[in-house]
């Protein structure tokens, strides 16, 4: 019944999904539905049909190669909680509720592209790449720069996000967020950190219209890890790099403050992990 509906496609293979999207260029792509369905209920989104990816098995699963962690885009967030990459795992662990994590997918979180989405800073700090598949084949783009505005990405017409590729990382990586309560909350601000070969890479959520990172911040963070910079210097570097919003949840001033505090704390955790700190 549903399959026969012209406005609703339920493909079972990636090829069928690409075709279904080509047939319905204006359709909304839906996987877990944890964003799309509430939006429809609240009428904050209109849909000219749907391509559901729920039955596309190729889009589920986590695999590792010698140098990459490959997460298929339809993998539910709940399946990320134990992945090797601890920043991604930590961001997944604090996302929504157990019920939401079971349905929500990593690809959906990325394609939502809202500044406060949990996984975005983790993927940015991890230097992830994205696999985009369309009628013409597959291309790989860096996640850095993929989100171009709140809710907007550089995905091409007819393309699906099919996988996320993270450089393998077994060392320190972490993610932390602040909000207005202690579970099931949208990040007021969030920070992810990855430390590798003595260098720290930080990324910031809800710190601007798109996920934020900067070489200048990473240089100071790395110096802090080495003990050659102070926490105040890192906070100042963060302050210069971010442009957070003011909204009814929090002021930009608080967000700037929290982003700096979280950045310092994550570097301190990295120091502890490396046996450098107390």
């Amino acid at each position: 019944m549903l399959l026969a509906a012209p406005r609703f496609a339920l493909p079972e293979t990636l090829g069928e999904a690409i075709t279904a999207l080509a047939d319905r260029p204006d359709a909304t792509v839906v996987a877990g539905g944890t964003e799309v369905m509430p939006d429809l209920l609240w009428r904050t989104r209109r849909a000219e049909g749907f391509v559901s990816l729920r039955r596309v098995r190729e889009l589920r699963g986590v695999t590792t190669t010698d140098d990459e962690l490959v997460v298929a885009a339809g993998t539910p967030v709940a399946a990320l909680i134990h992945v090797e990459h601890r920043a991604l795992a930590a961001a997944a662990t604090s996302l929504g509720t157990p019920l939401v994590r079971t349905e929500a997918t990593i690809g959906g979180n990325v394609m939502s592209a809202l500044p406060y989405r949990n996984l975005l800073p983790a993927l940015l700090a991890a230097d992830a790449a994205l696999e985009l598949t369309g009628p013409g084949g597959t291309r790989t783009v860096p996640f850095d720069g993929f989100v171009t505005a709140p809710g907007v990405t550089a995905i091409g017409p007819g393309e699906l996000l099919t996988a996320l590729r993270l450089p393998r990382h077994r060392g320190f990586a972490d993610y932390a967020k602040v909000g207005r309560r202690n579970a099931q909350f949208v990040a007021t601000a969030s920070v992810a950190a990855v430390a590798a070969a003595g260098r720290v890479r930080l990324a910031f959520g809800n710190a601007g219209p798109t996920p934020v990172r900067s070489d200048a911040v990473d240089a100071v963070a790395t110096a802090l890890l080495d003990g050659t910079a102070t926490p105040e210097e890192l906070r100042a570097a963060v302050d210069a790099a971010v442009d957070p919003p003011t909204d009814p949840v929090a002021s930009a001033e608080y967000r700037r403050h929290a982003l700096g505090v979280l950045a310092v704390r994550l570097v301190v955790r990295a120091q502890v992990d490396a046996g450098l700190g107390s």
Partner: peptide, 10 residues
Amino acid sequence: GGVGRAAEGG
């Protein structure tokens, strides 16, 4: 901060 694990290190 609960599940956000912000307090660790503070």
